[in-house]
Design a protein around this nucleic acid. Structure first.
Lengths: 228, 228
DNA sequence: CGGTGACTTGACAGGATTCAACAGAAGTGG
DNA sequence: CCACTTCTGTTGAATCCTGTCAAGTCACCG
């Protein structure tokens, strides 16, 4: 198909000469997955990575008891599963489509080849990994140093900022997934939303949340780390 | 000084032609720091990164209330503070020497220049960031999915494996720092060590810990994620 | 209409932090 | 060399947040 037309819009490939892009498009493969489909599991041998074209994928860790911690939710122009391309051979987490999705798969060998020959691709990839590291540091900070209400406030403010500071926002993921992203469980998230509503901090109608007292939310979230 | 002789032993620079190494050595600067000295703080503008030659440095996040979460402790051939070289301009965490240390500082611009021109340096750096990402994923898993005894068991087993499976091991960091690395506080760590001793899992004499029942410790640690 | 999944709420238990006091070890200075 | 301070580690009691278990509501769908 026209993988090429997708590649154009992926920041990771920005600045690549069209010759290289064409080469990439030739070695890549489109993959269409249904909601719920598992792309890889923790510890599985990796021979390439993905870029999300349509739909969304969650990347997460699983405890022996089945509890999950979401590391991030990837959508349109973002890659995932790129760690084992450069370090060990196996994936450090699980990945599952949370919607029907369209992905591009890049075989490891061909990609490494290309990255060796093109410094700007290497720089883009370095920037990507560095950003992720920054994001993970924020997640660690949140999990370790803040309580759940704090993390939730961080997330809401992050969402609000993403929408240009709008105070009415629509969750783009189910609350149960949000709970796992915040490092807690749906029950706790539900309770905290109820408490915040009672405190006049916000209003909840299904997935629509209205921030009523942004100032206090910011105090709650206080600190630098944002969960995304 | 002979920065050059140090560079030889840093994996990050492995495979670099000696010409490049010499260039690196010219743009780099040695920095000697006392125990307790702060190298950079969260949010500070970054213009380069460090490699540890002698001593040790802790990289950590700080909560508004002053509680800290250690991200990692770096020693001899490891770099730190490299994230802002490739993503935004500011450090995502704090760094402080926990011993008298000798560091090499690399200015950002010169290093980026070099990395653009040398694919193998780029690959080394990619491998480094990917490894760190893997390690962070493990830390997130531990913080979110396991209780403190579990994390402690993981860490002890990791230490034991590092020493070739020896059952008698010497903590190379103070217990208070270990607590912060495990995402808890010294009091809790102390209690858990006491309980584990009572349960016949191990023996503690100051910083020397003897693993008495490795099997049960492994069960406790169960799961893939290791704290390092 | 039965069934499934997302969400909510209550009662309860338990692990972890906080506050506080204290013991040893280590390092400093007279 | 000893007194003094500082750092590190330990222990107890009270508190609180969060997870677990269980039940129940609501919306959506075959």
């Amino acid at each position: 198909m026209d993988i090429l037309s997708f590649l154009d819009h992926v920041p990771l490939f920005k600045g690549l000469p069209s010759e290289q892009l064409q080469h990439l498009a030739r070695v890549a493969a489109l993959k269409s997955v249904r909601r719920g489909e598992v792309l890889f599991v923790d510890g599985e041998e990796a021979n390439g990575f993905y870029v999300t074209v349509r739909g969304r994928v969650k990347v997460y860790k699983l405890s022996p008891e089945g509890k999950e911690q979401v590391l991030h939710v990837v959508e349109f122009p973002e890659p995932f599963g790129e760690v084992p391309v450069f370090s060990g051979g196996c994936f450090p987490a699980n990945a599952q489509a949370i919607e029907e999705s369209l992905l591009i798969f890049f075989p490891r060998a061909a990609f490494v080849e290309l990255i060796r020959s093109d410094p700007s691709l290497a720089m883009n990839m370095l920037a990507l990994l560095a950003r992720r590291l920054r994001q993970f540091a924020g997640l660690i900070e949140g999990l370790s140093l803040k309580e759940v209400p704090s993390r939730l406030a961080s997330y809401l403010i992050y969402l609000s900022d993403k929408e240009g500071g709008h105070t009415i926002l629509e969750l783009d993921i189910p609350k149960s997934l949000l709970a796992n992203l915040l490092g807690t469980i749906p029950e706790t998230l539900s309770r905290i939303l109820a408490r915040m509503t009672a405190d006049g901090l916000l209003e909840v109608e299904g997935r629509r949340i209205t921030l009523l007292d942004r100032k206090r939310l910011e105090e709650l979230s206080s600190g630098t780390g944002a969960l995304r």
